[in-house]
Design a protein around this nucleic acid. Structure first.
Lengths: 220, 220
DNA sequence: CATAAATGTAAATGCTGTTAACATATATTT
DNA sequence: AAATATATGTTAACAGCATTTACATTTATG
């Protein structure tokens, strides 16, 4: 398992190519790197990658997996920091802010994670990674709802949490996406993404009991 | 100004290329059409487009303009339909739903409009089109705030409307983007994009007076 | 140790955006 | 109307790209 056993065989080419691609994406801020460049960076010829990946999309899929791991660990860290905090709402906001900050600090990765760049096959979606991140947000929301109601979750409360978490995700995703494309403060020059996200999330958490409870009552 | 004056000169090649590109984008659901295909569809050689567009991005910029016109007229139509409706909140929701429906019915256009596909120069952004659409949402929000307070907008109310409109835009954009990438009901299978958007927007409109008024009071 | 499998290389293919040299139609000037 | 400049088309070429094929070399296996 040496790095360069012979000078001919690489030893860790698969991993090296994923890291090379990730580095190129970060540096160039876009997904339009070439297989040739990634191979060059790993020190092999431009055909070598095809021994480890079916095509460029396959390589990108593996970079995407890496990106999801990064986001997931950031969310996990945030949730850990709020474990003993009695302000369960603040924990929910913090999850949203972590999402926003990840998007800001990893623009191209964030785009790669969520955007369907033309020809994504369903099998390549990797639902596991996506659901793991959402589960963390969901548990924060559930924790907050328990705190708010004074009792444990019951009846359609689980569905309520699921619905609220989806709303919060959509909100955070919109803020992060617009911010990343330099659109969010195009009109309101003084607006800050963090404020917009937290204020809107506050309204969502505050409004959940008033507005749309009926949707869940009348549904079962 | 004939369609084909001589068989050699096209007559309306510039417009024909924009329409051909738009058609290819719609058909293929992505922006990865080739100049050659667009030229072929317009009945000219693959080098002819370069007499009318500096490069492919220039052609895409013109397709984007077309897409913005489509969204703007849809929003304008919706606003017109709610002009004499006393339910000003419903008008705001309708603007969001129009945005969502445009995104659904024009996936690739929607992506082209907002996403920075790698190398967008600031000059090519066409701020006018973007701000025109936002202005329509903003006026709907202002109208709702006037209705709610019983008096006309005063003090920092304009800024409040700007801030709220930005929040609503981010929300609608997030819902539309996640929905277009088949992510929105990945976890909550029963969730409908329309419900998520309207319910969350309701909470935003309901919560604006309670939660973050202080941000505007302490700011001036 | 022989041989199969894995993993590298070089060369070729076809598609792409783009440019250069050239041809023809249209507009303008005399 | 003839001469000429400009606009707009063509064909042929270029480099860069993803990908494949034929071949070479190293590693693993019986």
């Amino acid at each position: 398992m040496n790095s360069s056993k012979s000078g001919y065989h690489h030893g860790h080419l698969r991993d090296a190519l994923i890291l090379a691609a990730a580095a190129l994406i970060e540096e160039q801020g876009s997904l339009s790197f070439s297989i040739t460049d990634a191979a060059k960076r790993a020190g092999v010829s431009s055909a070598a990658p095809y021994r480890h990946f079916h095509d460029k999309q396959d390589l990108l899929d593996n970079v995407r997996d890496l990106a999801f791991i990064g986001l997931h660990s950031a969310l996990e860290e945030t949730q850990k920091n709020y474990r003993d905090n009695s302000d369960t709402g603040a924990a929910v906001y913090a999850m949203g802010l972590t999402y926003l900050n990840y998007a800001r600090n990893n623009r191209a990765f964030f785009s790669l994670m969520w955007e369907d760049h033309g020809q994504m096959q369903p099998e390549r979606q990797n639902l596991a990674h996506k659901s793991e991140g959402f589960s963390l947000l969901l548990s924060s929301v559930e924790n907050h709802l328990i705190q708010g109601s004074g009792k444990s979750l019951c009846q359609n409360a689980e569905q309520k949490a699921l619905y609220l978490a989806t709303q919060l995700w959509a909100l955070a995703h919109g803020v992060a996406t617009l911010e990343n494309n330099q659109l969010l403060n195009m009109f309101d020059k003084s607006a800050q993404a963090e404020n917009i996200l937290v204020d809107a999330a506050s309204a969502l958490l505050a409004g959940i009991d008033q507005v749309d409870t009926n949707r869940f009552e009348t549904q079962g």
